[in-house]
Nucleic acid binder design. Structure first.
Lengths: 222, 222
DNA sequence: ACATTTCTGTTGTAATTACAACATTAAGGA
DNA sequence: TCCTTAATGTTGTAATTACAACAGAAATGT
């Protein structure tokens, strides 16, 4: 557990909390670290979520399976993100998503019940924690709206250009790497992979973009 | 101002706060009520948002204009919802959406800076407020994910059935009213209005649904 | 009641997409 | 290195959609 302290204390979840306090709080919240492997389900659709899952290392896809069996990738989460945070606040709500591990991942798991209630121990910093949670979930909210923007475009071309433009802005550079392989990007943008590949080639041949594997260059401003 | 107290105190924003405290808090947060009319922009894309907008009465569309000039309706908000709440937590972030008034609306406006900082007055309930904000935005995130589910369906038919099924579940009844006219529903689901109308007729003639204006009956389980 | 405007439904056509099937390239293991 | 497998790119076709243009219904104002 101790070997993860440096990662944990750098998380926005514990922003504004000293090392000594952190140690106490982790005990108080029943915190422990769990390892996940590729394909492991961290959260399953239908479960009641009462814990906070903080990604210390690795990648997690937030997915959903449609009634007709297609996969939707809703979000891609990395280190310092929380998984299913919105679900813990609304008690007794069933998870409407799956959280699937991509590669290896380390997750810090905390008991939210204990986080949200004040306790007699030195944990007078619950207030800071809740405030941090609010900031984290706000950021997630903005990203969800951005995702809605991406997939709300009319054509495959517009979806790609909007997505790449948003990624470019996030990286503050017109050269950047995307976190998806082609199939996952297609599932994220809700389009057919092969049609997407075709459109990417076309955009490249027309000089709008360039790419090699996951490394992209956006040559125009959208 | 006083005449709105009953509406304000029933809002989830002030859940767990007594009447006497409420009055003090409203003063402390510089709270005031503003009236908006149909089409008024409450929040504009590009603005820096530093206030909390609580809908006391009326409807608000959260919209976005695409680079190519199409309108996307991201969310429909009602009384007791907050507008652009995620934006205030991330300071100095430009609003990525427009909030447009639909019909008449009453909005309570609070100074978030004052909400997020403790003060010397009787406002020891800032903690409760932040905790409420966390719950509110959590609910909003779950709804955004639901919206993503709706628009991620492959065909117009699947989008409609998923949307109607989700609405039906929300109303806990297979008979319900939807808050959109046809054009707005089309902009919400990112499909063409006329194509949507056509598909609705088809679903009706095939016996899957029934409707008259905004009143829908879902006859199958999706 | 009438005229006007807005909203909704219908239809044909051109454009776009999904899908399947296959080609090519990259990656990983023996 | 070669072999195997996975990822990506390419192409043709059938299905789906957007769009425009219009018809009918409902709402609104006078």
């Amino acid at each position: 557990m101790e070997k993860y302290y440096s990662k944990i204390k750098n998380s926005p979840l514990f922003c504004g909390i000293t090392d000594a306090e952190l140690e106490k709080m982790l005990k108080c919240f029943g915190g422990y670290v769990k390892k996940y492997e590729d394909g492991d389900m961290i959260i399953r659709q239908g479960e009641i979520i009462s814990k906070i899952y903080l990604i210390l290392d690795g990648e997690v896809n937030v997915e959903k399976e449609t009634y007709w069996g297609r996969r939707i990738i809703i979000q891609k989460l990395y280190a310092n993100n929380n998984i299913g945070l919105a679900l813990v606040a609304s008690k007794n709500i069933e998870a409407n998503i799956n959280a699937v591990c991509v590669g290896h991942a380390l997750i810090l798991i905390l008991n939210y019940e204990k986080c949200s209630r004040m306790c007699q121990n030195a944990c007078m910093h619950h207030g800071v924690l809740i405030s941090n949670l609010f900031k984290i979930i706000s950021k997630e909210n903005i990203e969800l709206i951005e995702k809605i923007e991406n997939i709300s475009q009319k054509t495959i071309r517009d979806k790609l250009l909007t997505y790449l433009s948003n990624e470019s802005q996030k990286h503050k550079s017109n050269i950047f790497e995307i976190p998806f392989n082609r199939q996952d990007l297609a599932d994220y943008l809700n389009i057919d992979r092969s049609a997407m590949s075709f459109e990417l080639s076309k955009l490249k041949s027309e000089g709008y973009i360039n790419y090699k594997k996951n490394k992209f260059v956006l040559k125009i401003e959208v």
